[in-house]
């Protein structure tokens, strides 16, 4: 027996070399470092900085002035745009959030009934709006405000309206259209996760279910599919929260910034307005903290709802 082999045998005998180490080994730290550094600088510090700055009056040029809870007071007392912005954000979140979450799951569930080829074709088709990042441009032309706009001319020729509707400038419609476009784009990463997760549910569970007396697919969905998808569903929910609360990109491209009568103003567009137009960074930070807190609350509630601890 060579010395090397002998040594190996010895190591085996004495202690098992285990990869899941409790020790903070140098290579582990080195490999984590690039990400950790960027993560701290571009995610953690911005969050921390906005908490700190929210207690100051800061216009980027002059030194920050301590104002205590002044910025938070301003939110609820002096800012007449804040109420509607929160209202719109919650409306978006409560309508498009649950709908897109449910659709991403139910459509994936229906698609999963098909064979592999049809399944991958259908998932491509449903994912494509989210895949082509700038696709929402198309809606701008379809809902164009003049009579050449596809929707307008369709409605005129059907005799439903006589004059073209300026969709994105009319507060009655702007909000709804932004929600529709957001839904159109919402079959994203969570939809893919659902497709993959559903495909991975153990076939034997369904067989066992059928033997145990499950006689329709709704019962199968409720008793087998959903319970085995819980962790994917939580991931999917988190992703949908992320996208519904950052709806501003779609809203500003389609309805302009600021939108007419603030009809599609959300907390996020309000933050952009306060921060980049009025340069009131202290107040913008306080608004950001408010938004973060709101998202965290939604996230915690979702965690409670979806994951029941055994």
């Amino acid at each position: 027996m060579s010395t090397l082999q002998a040594e190996r045998a010895k190591t085996f005998g004495k202690k098992r070399i285990s990869f899941a180490q409790d020790a903070l080994r140098a290579p582990f730290v080195v490999m984590l470092l690039p990400f950790l550094l960027l993560f701290v600088v571009f995610t953690l510090i911005p969050i921390g900085a906005s908490v700190v700055l929210s207690f100051f009056d800061y216009d980027v040029v002059n030194t920050p002035q301590w104002v205590g809870l002044g910025n938070y007071l301003k939110m609820f007392v002096n800012d007449y745009e804040f109420g509607p912005a929160v209202g719109n954000t919650l409306k978006f979140a409560l309508v498009t959030g649950p709908i897109s979450f449910a659709l991403a799951f139910l459509l994936a569930w229906m698609i999963n009934e098909f064979g592999p080829k049809t399944r991958s074709l259908l998932s491509f088709l449903f994912y494509s709006p989210a895949l082509v990042g700038n696709g929402y441009f198309i809606w701008q032309i379809m809902f164009s405000g003049d009579s050449y706009g596809y929707v307008n001319s369709l409605l005129i020729s059907m005799g439903i309206i006589t004059d073209p509707i300026v969709w994105f400038r009319d507060p009655n419609y702007a909000f709804t259209i932004v929600m529709i476009v957001q839904l159109w784009m919402s079959m994203g990463i969570s939809f893919l996760a659902n497709i993959a997760g559903l495909n991975n549910v153990d076939e034997a569970m369904y067989e066992a279910g059928a033997i145990d007396g499950i006689r329709n697919r709704w019962a199968e969905l409720w008793y087998i599919t959903v319970p085995s998808m819980k962790s994917i569903l939580l991931f999917s929910a988190v992703m949908q929260v992320q996208s519904t609360f950052s709806i501003s990109a779609v809203a500003t491209t389609l309805t302009g910034f600021p939108s007419v009568n603030h009809s599609t103003e959300t907390i996020l567009t309000h933050i952009t307005d306060v921060g980049t137009v009025r340069f009131d960074m202290g107040y913008a930070s306080a608004l950001s903290v408010f938004l973060f807190a709101l998202m965290m609350i939604v996230r915690l509630v979702l965690g409670r709802l979806l994951i029941t601890k055994d």
Partner: peptide, 23 residues
């Protein structure tokens, strides 16, 4: 760190926009 990553999944470039701008 992993716990922080899971929490941070909620936020993206849009929601962190203004604070990131300062950085």
């Amino acid at each position: 760190v992993f716990w922080a990553v899971q929490v941070a999944l909620l936020f993206n470039g849009y929601t962190l926009g203004i604070p990131q701008y300062l950085i």
